[in-house]
Design a protein around this nucleic acid. Structure first.
Lengths: 198, 198
DNA sequence: CAACATCTGTCTGTTAGTCAACACTTGAGT
DNA sequence: ACTCAAGTGTTGACTAACAGACAGATGTTG
């Protein structure tokens, strides 16, 4: 919830949240999200049910955090493979989205519409946040707000990645990333006034 | 400490003790017991140092519990392979001791005398307790106290097993168990008045 | 329909774990 | 000899997690 990324938080809290996330993760490998009760989760996490509500208002909040955290972990892995140059900084983001969707497609039957929609929203929002953070690190004078650009680009990336995973014969993710990046890059550059860029 | 076998104990207590035992177990794979501090253990267990003292007076107490628990786990595995007949009930115990010592020999340099002596004492005591429990389940009239018999037999079993592991070319543990059982069985039968036994 | 079971969300008092102190011991170093 | 660093064992205030209860919602089943 609040303080999710977090620093020096009470170890008990980190432990408990990790236990809950891990329990949900394991249960999702067995059955659909809507067939999982909070009791199931807390039992699998060896925690008291009341403790759950001290951390999340409902199971959707836990799911959201689980998605966020595991997506970020994926992204961290992808990042090390790229240089830090500004122009290609969002390549790993695209790659992470591709991998995440590919992983999701493997492990889940596509029939959980409510679940999928929720995942979708969470992932897109996370992409948006990441892009926004990136643009704040390298401020550029522009006529379009960074917020709008981040939002647009995040949907574009997700849409492109989703198209890619649904192809019957996919090209390698790394190759696809180059194509997608070529499409998305103009969005990020739109409205830039000063042409200062490496 | 108290309530080790235990039943419905506060989940936090079971979790914490398990975390500490597991941490010590992992650290023992890396370095010798006397090179491990309580700080190391609590750090590896993601617990506060003060919490340690709420459960164990010192690291030896933790080690003792670790040995006890892992030995009992080993024993449980061995037990299922045997029938429940009274005459051979202690076969799995001998086998468990053999396996435990063999495991220990593999994973530890034999130079930690203090450590080895402590393990030895703990294991023998555990054997004694198990034998004593067994004799209490099947009370027989005897001229020698069950306590003395259990103590004697436990040392005999440990001694035999230790001799076995130190042989340069060991026979299979299962075969050795039969021999050892033949040696130890008379101890258990000594002083029996009524010859009632299946 | 009523009876029933199950899950939810909330609340209470109690207990375990955290944290930052503390004084003490030990050993290495210069 | 003296410091300095690092580990030990203890304390008390704070807080997270526990057990167990509760009413209400949901969804069976006869």
């Amino acid at each position: 919830m609040l303080q999710t990324d977090c620093q020096r938080l009470d170890p008990r809290i980190r432990r408990t949240r990790h236990l809950l996330q891990d329990a949900l993760k394991r249960l999702l490998e067995q059955r659909d999200f809507d067939k999982i009760t909070i009791q199931d989760i807390t039992e699998a996490a060896t925690l008291n049910r009341a403790t759950f509500y001290a951390h999340y208002p409902d199971k959707f909040a836990l799911l959201e955090e689980l998605i966020r955290v595991s997506f970020l972990q994926l992204l961290e892995c992808r990042k090390v493979r790229f240089d830090g140059s500004c122009a290609t900084a969002f390549h790993p983001v695209i790659l992470a989205v591709c991998d995440y969707l590919a992983e999701l497609q493997k492990s889940h039957s596509a029939r959980q519409h409510q679940f999928e929609a929720f995942v979708e929203g969470t992932v897109i929002d996370q992409i948006r946040v990441i892009l926004l953070e990136g643009s704040q690190k390298h401020p550029v004078e522009r006529t379009i707000s960074p917020e709008l650009i981040a939002a647009t680009a995040s949907w574009a990336i997700y849409g492109a990645a989703k198209q890619w995973v649904n192809l019957p014969d996919r090209i390698p993710a790394e190759d696809f990333v180059a194509t997608a990046a070529a499409m998305v890059h103009p969005i990020l550059m739109s409205g830039v006034v000063s042409p200062v860029h490496s």
